[in-house]
Nucleic acid binder design. Sequence first.
DNA 1: AGTACCTGCTAACGTTTCTTTGCATGTGCA
DNA 2: TGCACATGCAAAGAAACGTTAGCAGGTACT
Lengths: 122, 122
Amino acid sequence: MTEGGGDELLRVLAALASPHRLRVLAALAGGRNYVSRLARDLGISRALLQVHLRKLEAAGLVTSDLEFSEDGKALKFYEVVPFELTLTPQVVRDAAGSLTGPDDHDPDIRDHGPDIGKDNLS
Amino acid sequence: MTEGGGDELLRVLAALASPHRLRVLAALAGGRNYVSRLARDLGISRALLQVHLRKLEAAGLVTSDLEFSEDGKALKFYEVVPFELTLTPQVVRDAAGSLTGPDDHDPDIRDHGPDIGKDNLS
DNA sequence: AGTACCTGCTAACGTTTCTTTGCATGTGCA
DNA sequence: TGCACATGCAAAGAAACGTTAGCAGGTACT
């Protein structure tokens, strides 16, 4: 297993939460393609596309495969990994348990107290 | 219908793609709760929690309900809206069609051409 | 040698998002 | 009147993200 925890879910959600990446994924769902061509199809720059593809790949939503065309050109093909993810409150509940989140919050409250010493209009 | 398009999906995904909001949602999945108390339970500041709750609500994942406790205090209760969202390449493909995305890209390429006039080491 | 494709990378900028801090408002109770 | 607890909002600094521009390398065909 790759990891399975809530962080995985988070990575997938973050990868999906972008118009560009949604479009990229949609385009690839219509068939595999290589970077330069895909960039032209979508009308975005190659550099930009690469970044997004990397994120999609990191999330495990697409796979890359370096191939060589008959005339020797190196082409990097991407294709979608068939996935099926169902989101429900319960799923979230389970996933949230194992989160290597930003803060490993300790059990103490803060919020600087509910406004003391300040009477309004006597 | 609220809107149904791909933008809706995007909003939901964006709302979910955050450790904090995932935790908030998880906490609410365990039962409804009001803001201040929830903040204490989660160990985060009230202001921060409010922001995240607003986003979750905007995405339609939770609902708020202002109530008054027996002793007259105004309590804003939040609870999860039972949802069931399934993500597959095909779903993405459909959703990507109707995207009021950041750019309404015109069909022209750019990428400043593939490096011309520049011979390295003669 | 020159052009046309392909790949990859990084520095830098602009923009958005996150988070804190602080103040304003209200009720109820000693 | 002072404290405890509830709500709300806005400014502002910090941190993360998205995007572009530019350079690097490669093969192949004229």
